[in-house]
């Protein structure tokens, strides 16, 4: 079950929310749409789920054109919109049954389909409660259960963890990871940790355009700049300049500078050229100078830094 988006463009009035984006998502991937608010993540999802139609471009879900065959496409997709679509005056079971009936789950299978998602989403204890009485975390789980009740092959979740407390977020992420094993799963978020924690692949979207596409690791590799290392050495009678010069003489090291000294330690900041691991050389150099190495830490450019770099306007 794949989703293929080709040159998708969507205008709201004169402003383009999505500008000519193309990508393809294959079965069994958990893909994260990452981007600031208003980047076009929700709009893209709304077009894939046939809630909106595009101005230009094509979207295919399992080879079906979303404009030509919206009803067939909807049957294959489970969708949790950003604004969780709950009827607060209904109880959990009735709501899930209603969703199952709308998904044309056969009458004799509705009961078991509903029980299955109730178990999966941990809703056993609240099954007969009115949705309006539930906590935000449970509401979100009911929304997820609704999206999965017909066992769709594609799950599209728009900001599934927004507004939840840290414990609830971890629970929902666990659930998403578990679901991602069998389904094609697309989720959107503006929280970087979420992507790092759950996704196999990230599409960073900014101003309606895809600015980066890849696994969280490969993106880190790609956008890693100079290697920055912090070094802590035991204080010695040796001269500061001598250490700086010695380390700077290691090949690929561009610069070494003492940033701090106190009674016991000397701290240095070392920059090396992009893509070179100089940690071993530094270690050997320090040992050869009869100094004691107390700490060595290479700074990683986090996904968060990459995100900020790419979406800064």
């Amino acid at each position: 079950m794949s989703i293929r988006v080709e040159n998708l463009t969507k205008y709201y009035g004169p402003t383009a929310a999505v500008k000519d984006i193309s990508f393809e998502i294959n079965t069994g991937q958990i893909v994260g749409f990452l981007g600031p608010n208003g980047a076009g993540k929700s709009t893209t999802m709304k077009i894939i789920t046939t809630y909106l139609t595009q101005n230009q471009g094509k979207v295919y879900v399992d080879g079906l054109d979303t404009e030509q065959k919206p009803i067939e496409v909807r049957k294959k997709i489970g969708y949790l919109p950003e604004q969780n679509p709950l009827y607060l005056d209904m109880n959990v079971i009735d709501y899930l049954k209603f969703a199952a009936e709308l998904e044309s789950v056969p009458k004799n299978e509705i009961e078991s389909a509903v029980n299955k998602v109730v178990d999966l989403c941990g809703l056993q204890d609240v099954r007969h409660k009115d949705i309006g009485e539930l906590s935000k975390g449970f509401k979100q789980r009911v929304g997820l259960a609704q999206a999965m009740v017909h066992n769709p092959e594609v799950l599209i979740l728009d900001e599934p963890t927004s507004g939840l407390d840290p414990n609830q977020i971890i629970e929902i992420r666990k659930l998403i990871k578990q679901l991602g094993k069998q389904k094609t799963l697309v989720l959107s978020t503006h929280i970087m940790q979420e992507v790092e924690a759950t996704c196999d692949r990230v599409l960073i979207i900014n101003n309606g355009e895809i600015v980066a596409d890849g696994s969280p690791d490969s993106l880190q590799d790609k956008f890693r700049g100079k290697v920055e290392i912090n070094l802590v050495i035991k204080k010695d009678s040796i001269d500061k300049d001598l250490i700086e010069r010695a380390i700077a003489s290691i090949s690929n090291v561009e610069r070494a500078r003492v940033t701090r000294t106190d009674d016991k330690t000397i701290t240095l900041h070392v920059s090396a050229q992009k893509g070179h691991d100089v940690r071993e050389d530094i270690f050997r150099k320090i040992v050869s100078m009869n100094l004691v190495l107390l700490g060595l830490h290479q700074e990683e450019k986090s996904l968060e830094d990459i995100f900020r770099l790419l979406t800064k306007n």
Binding site: P85, Y87, A99
Partner: peptide, 14 residues
């Protein structure tokens, strides 16, 4: 107002 319209309109219902 409650957003449930998005539920109805993304289910396989005309």
């Amino acid at each position: 107002k409650s957003g449930t319209i998005e539920l109805l309109l993304t289910k396989p219902v005309t």
